[in-house]
Design a protein around this nucleic acid. Structure first.
Length: 293
DNA sequence: CAGTAGTTGTGGATAGATGT
DNA sequence: ACATCTATCCACAACTACTG
């Protein structure tokens, strides 16, 4: 007997994959569908317009960019107003025993805490608001499905795995979102992680999240317990340590990889934070990795 | 070996950014 | 608004590696 739905205990003990049952784009121009349920788990992504989804317990209003993950056998209906046509992308999937060398759900859960949490949550459905991150993966998946050759399923397996992990992480993030300025801080941190290799000033970060620099400074410190520049420097030094340990880049080139423009300053900051000068740190790592030399 | 070039680390002076 | 901190520039010493 194959696992039934997202929360079947067999998914956590046996070796199973998601298997796509159906996928389709559909433009609804005014429509009402009676309550129904089906065996596959369903993902619906609203590409444009808006719609109303009723479940036994709740009425959900989805708009462009929203995504819903519905567990197997969860009763739901769809309603689209004539005045607001709705374009949707649907993917339905079930679970099947492991074939090939792709990671199983059990393994994915072991590797990603968020997915484990989602599969323990037992929620009949989860809604992600304004979730372009999930859409990016979903779109790749559907594109791949459309071009797939016979016996050429590895890419869809990987994308499907990626999609589930991505959704699980977004659900987890949404759960953490209760405190008011957390989303600013998260976006701020994300910006730093994506741009640490460039010269960054606090005003650039503030502009990115549409806040006044001094207000950002205050809430950043309250939330992260360090200043914006402290955080950025820490990030840069982490990257520098990684580059010193795992590459042969000359020490004088490292600063430009981490957004610091002079080697002198890099050297000083590195020593202050790490306790060793960059060259000495690299030597100590070499000894650590190749004690024989 | 001395001479040269390149790399690395340090210290001081400074303007401008930052944090409160 | 203002004291403090950051990041840069410059000068220089210590070290390594190569050259004749």
């Amino acid at each position: 007997m194959e696992p039934h739905g997202l929360y079947d205990a067999k998914l956590r003990t046996g070796d199973y994959h998601p298997r796509i049952a159906a996928y389709y784009y559909k433009q609804w121009n005014g429509f009402q569908m009676a309550l129904h349920a089906h065996k596959p788990v369903e993902i619906m992504y609203v590409m444009s317009g808006k719609c109303k989804i009723e479940t036994d317990t709740e009425t959900l209003r989805l708009k462009k960019g929203d995504l819903i993950l519905l567990d197997a056998e969860v009763r739901h209906s769809l309603e689209v107003e004539e005045s607001h046509p709705c374009r949707m992308l649907n993917v339905e999937f079930t679970f099947t025993e492991q074939q090939g060398a792709y990671p199983t759900l059990k393994e994915l859960c072991a590797g990603d805490g968020a997915l484990g949490e989602l599969l323990d949550s037992g929620r009949p459905y989860v809604v992600l608001r304004d979730s372009s991150e999930a859409y990016t993966v979903l779109k790749s998946l559907v594109l791949e499905l459309g071009e797939k050759q016979e016996g050429d399923e590895w890419m869809t397996h990987l994308l499907m795995s990626q999609l589930l992990v991505r959704i699980a992480r977004l659900v987890k993030e949404a759960k953490d979102e209760e405190r008011p300025y957390d989303s600013y801080i998260r976006n701020c941190v994300k910006f730093l992680h994506q741009n640490y290799d460039r010269p960054i000033q606090v005003k650039d970060v503030a502009a990115e999240v549409n806040l006044h620099p001094s207000y950002l400074q205050r809430i950043f410190k309250e939330s992260m317990d360090c200043t914006v520049m402290d955080y950025l420097t820490g990030l840069r030094i982490d990257k520098a340590m990684m580059l010193l340990t795992h590459t042969d880049l000359p020490v004088h080139d490292i600063p430009e990889y981490i957004g610091i423009s002079t080697r002198e300053y890099f050297s000083a900051v590195f020593k202050k934070r790490v306790g060793l000068a960059p060259g000495a740190y690299r030597k100590s790592r070499e000894l650590f990795h190749h004690p024989a030399r």
